[in-house]
Design a protein around this nucleic acid. Structure first.
Lengths: 349, 349
DNA sequence: CGGCCTCTTGAAAGCGCTTTCAGATAGCCA
DNA sequence: TGGCTATCTGAAAGCGCTTTCAAGAGGCCG
């Protein structure tokens, strides 16, 4: 067999590997690796030679080989219920910020408010070898935690607090209760709730529970006809408020699961000739971009998405790197008062 | 040296590898691989044994090893200007749908309307070993295409059409021109534009160019004081319209780069006592969720995000799998007529 | 009954990197 | 100059999978 030079046998487009850089720089692959990973103990001239060779060849290290060798994938997964939801996107965005700073990549997936789907997506990420995982909420498929444990990677939950598991979030029940108390302080007695789907959604559920408890603490109750569950979105809000009115005496105030729902409810209320806040006070959730610009500007519970994302990122990075980390980080939500809330008609100041 | 059973020497938490499954099932790792990858030619009893062993052990194949071995990472990258922008998120979401169906993972990154950042993020994904890459628009860092070429992976651009490169999108100039023509047909003569930042943004630029050309075709021109460039968002829209009014005689109609900008402009117009569409017609871009619910409902250019995402996904998957694929897919945008546009005051019907 | 296929299977060779380990080189002191 | 230590460097052994290759096991035909 002829012993032709290797270059001729290889397709010309084959991308360069460490071996090529080493050959060109006249060193071993070990040295190439040392230089490219910034580890100390390489003489300046060799270092330069390697750098130049890598540059000339346009060398890009093969991530899979590196991951296999280091047993670090340098990627973190996140599974959120809905990647099109503003609140989740904002958290993902700040989460990614932190990951990038630490050199990690974010791999995000959609679970669509379904536990089975969440399990499937998370498993998919686990198979990919992510070094950490972010989830939303405290309700998951029974098998999920076992799989994460078997993968041996850290996990952090967001958006709600958890009794047992690592988490970064806020007390959904307490913040919703705060909104209810504010309304009651204004003099409201008939308060309604329009939330998104609560099945397998601890945030939505907790909010309603918190409101009901706050009402109960003042001797009021959340009438079942004032407790509406609809699909997310502006259309959902309209439908929800329509349902609520069909159910009996109208509430004087409502608390909505998102600002979109609140927007929809406001539109429906307006269409019915109700004035806001004169006939109906409205509170949303999330403080979306448009909330201050609605007519009237929407009172809402602001979730500090950026802080949650950053804290979740810091949390995972720390644990991945073996540093100690507090289990629970609370980032309280905040009630932002605007003009969509006022005392009910005829109430004493 | 004692020859203790291997299990005792290993830390109990070590996650199982193919070797473990093989041992438990009494076969070789080759057979394990064959079974788990569904390739034919394994006798039923062995297949069952392997399946069971894998199940019992909770075996999850190491993605890095698999990627290294197959030279397929089973992941696709996407770099978008702003991951918090509704239009991009919708495209990413449908893009991901398709990728998932084909067994691929989406890895998305943010470039923030900056070419250097885009290059950095794309390089980061390339290093990770993605099998394909989605970009937005036709303007990129001069080095980017060389790097993609060196990585030897397919790339597809979205949101605009390209003369040279693979793309899925629409003709931004033509669709904006359509909006301008519609306004001129209604009788408008003084038409303004409020767009987001146009630097390194071919979509924004093309839209303004298209509008100016449409005006010119009818003997009108886009006055410089009616050509406003601001940052995205509702606040930007308010500022933009304020600037436009400060510049001289007000336009009777405006075309905005996004529905958020249009919303902001409408708020500012209303605050100035202008009625819409009586004094001012407004057209947005994207057909956001809230567009039909504004007061009045917003006429807007709908971008078929889901179709773009799906087509881009199909495009990349096909090329990754070596199937032929058309270079250019046009998915036309559509002008959705609502109540925010009308003939200017005093115009003949 | 021998020869030839076909069907299964396992051994072993990578994939491209990191990292250990030991050898080579150089510097320094006695 | 010799001996020792401190620095560098390369060979080689993995990391955990896929895939080729060759061999073993049956089955069938002449």
């Amino acid at each position: 067999m002829l012993d032709l030079p290797e270059e001729i046998l290889e397709p010309p487009t084959r991308s360069p590997v460490a071996r090529d850089v080493a050959r060109r720089a006249g060193v071993s692959t070990a040295t190439v690796s040392r230089v490219l990973n910034g580890s100390a103990g390489v003489r300046a001239d060799k270092r330069e030679a390697v750098m130049r060779a890598a540059q000339d060849l346009g060398f890009v290290a093969n991530g899979a080989a590196r991951a296999l060798s280091t047993r670090r994938f340098m990627a973190v997964g996140a599974v959120v219920p809905n990647i099109e939801n503003e609140a989740f996107v904002r958290v993902l965005s700040s989460f990614q910020d932190r990951l990038r700073q630490a050199g990690y990549t974010l791999v995000a997936a959609n679970a669509g408010y379904d536990l089975e789907d969440e399990l499937r997506e998370a498993t998919f990420l686990l198979e990919r070898g992510v070094d950490g995982l972010m989830l939303v909420g405290d309700i998951h498929h029974p098998d999920l935690h076992a799989r994460i444990a078997r993968a041996g990677i850290p996990m952090v939950q967001t958006f709600s607090l958890s009794r047992e598991r690592p988490c970064v979030g806020f007390d959904n029940a307490a913040s919703a209760a705060r909104a209810a108390n504010y309304l009651m302080d204004l003099g409201h007695r008939r308060i309604g709730v329009i939330s998104g789907l609560r099945k397998d959604n601890d945030r939505g559920g907790a909010r309603v529970t918190g409101i009901a408890a706050a009402l109960a603490a003042r001797g009021l109750r959340l009438a079942s006809e004032h407790d509406i569950e609809i699909s997310y979105g502006i259309g959902g809000g309209r439908d929800g408020f329509r349902q609520m009115l069909a159910g009996g005496p109208p509430p004087t105030a409502i608390i909505c699961g998102t600002d979109q729902i609140a927007f929809g409810a406001m539109i429906e209320a307006r269409a019915r000739g109700l004035s806001i806040p004169g006939d109906l006070s409205v509170i949303g959730h999330n403080d979306s971009d448009f909330a201050p610009f609605l007519d009237p500007p929407l009172t809402t519970i602001r979730i500090h998405s950026a802080e949650i994302g950053h804290a979740a990122g810091d949390h995972l990075i720390a644990r991945i790197q073996g540093r100690p980390m507090v289990r629970l980080t609370e980032i309280d939500a905040e009630l932002i008062l605007r003009a969509s809330t006022a005392p009910p008609r005829g109430a004493a100041a």
